[in-house]
Amino acid sequence: MSTITQKICLLGDFSVGKTSLVRRFIEDKFSDRYLSTVGVKVSRKLVEVKTEIETHQINLLIWDLEGNTKFKSIAPSYLKGASSSIIVGDLSRSDTLSNLTQHLRLFWEINPQGQVAVALNKADLIPPEKLAKLVENYQLDNFPRVIGVYTTSAKTGDRIEQMFEDIATVLIPARKP
């Protein structure tokens, strides 16, 4: 059983729910009080991924970055060395969704080989019938190295575990011959 450590960055506009996603994933807690992240907050969780051959332990170091606003962009130096990233958008705010590609570009500019998962958060606020249509508009699967687009909800915990597991699976190092 091998253990590797990987850095994951959360990117997205302010108040899309990056910190809440991390909190749900790590502590399984949610609070609807909005607290703006200042700078960066680093968290850690050990994820086990079972493949047919063996069990891998992936130590995810999750860098929850300050969301960018009109006046302040994300410091690129925080993204350095990240093997993957979660780009977060808020389903209830369309501008945050249209910014997703911009974040993708920024991340790949610094980590050209980085893997990306797209989280469309706050799915609980959107009626189910509208949800499918909204998601259809933001299919980013045509980009290479996009693991998937996930409609998540930090409030209900929907799809979050799955998203992190998928990321961890992708991060398992290729078996050396």
Binding site: T5, K7, V42, W63, K80, G81, A82, S83
Partner: peptide
Amino acid sequence: DKDSGLIIQEIQIPGERHLDSEMLAGMLTA
């Protein structure tokens, strides 16, 4: 590691309180 903030190697002196090296390294790097 300067970019990612991942621990390459660590030595903690026995007898001292164990530090969460990865978090510490991450925050230090940040």
